[in-house]
Amino acid sequence: MSERGRRGKAFKAAFPHTIPIFAGFWFLGMTYGIYMNVSGFPFWYPMLMSLTIFAGSVEFVAVNLLLGAFNPFQVLAMTLMINARHLFYGLSMLDKYRGNGWKDFYLIFGMCDESFSINYTARIPEGIDRGWFMFFVTLLNHFYWFFGAALGGIFGSLIRFDTEGLDFVMTAMFVAIFMEQWMKEKEHVSSLVGVGVTLLCLVAFGADRFLIPAMAVILGVLTFLRKPLERRGECGD
C-alpha cells in the first residue's frame, strides 16, 4: 500500500476514537478561551497557549499565573507538579511511542491525558499503521483543543451557552476507558489501588493538593506489591 493509502486508512480508524474528545475539547477549550478573554488577554494568547502547552488543567492555572506577579521558577515548579502524572504515561508508553520515526516526537509532545488513554487502550485493527493511528489521535485532539480555545478567545463574552453538564463527557470517557481496561485485565489489583488510593488522598488532602500524594502512594503500593503481582502475571500469561 502507498504511504498515502496507509495514512488515509489510519485516519479513518483513528477519527471515531476521538469523537468524545471532540465533544469535550471544543467545549472545555472554549471555556478556557472565554476565561482568558474575560481575564483581559487578546484572542491570540489562548490560541498560542493551546498550541504550545496542550495540557488542559495547567492552562487554566496559567491564566492565574499570568495575572499574578512575575515569578518564572514558581511557574515552572507549579507546572511540574500539576503535570507530574505525565511521567507515569511516559513510563507506560516507552515501547509504543518508539520506532515511529519523527512521529515519536509529536506523540510525546502531545501526550495529554486523553491522547495517552486512547492510544494506550485502543484496539487498533489489523492492517492499520499504529504510528499513523496514534499520530492522528494526538493531532485531532490537539486540533479540537486549539479550535475551542480560539473560538472562546475570539468570541469570548458574546457566547452564551446552555450546555450545562456537557463537561461530564470527559468523566464519562475516563470511566469508559477504566471499564475497558477492567474488562481486559485478568486481575484488578492495580485498578483498585488507583481508585482507592486516590479517593483516600482526596479525602485526606483536599481537592487542591491530593494529586501528588496520590501518585506517590500509588507508586509505593505497586512497588510493595511487585513480587506477588509479577508472579501472578507470569502465571496468567
Partner: peptide, 16 residues
C-alpha cells in the same frame, strides 16, 4: 513492571 501496572491505576486516578 511499572509501565505495565501503572496504566490501570492511572485510569482509576483520572476518574477520581
Amino acid at each position: 513492571y511499572l509501565g505495565k501496572v501503572l496504566p490501570p491505576a492511572v485510569f482509576g486516578l483520572l476518574v477520581v
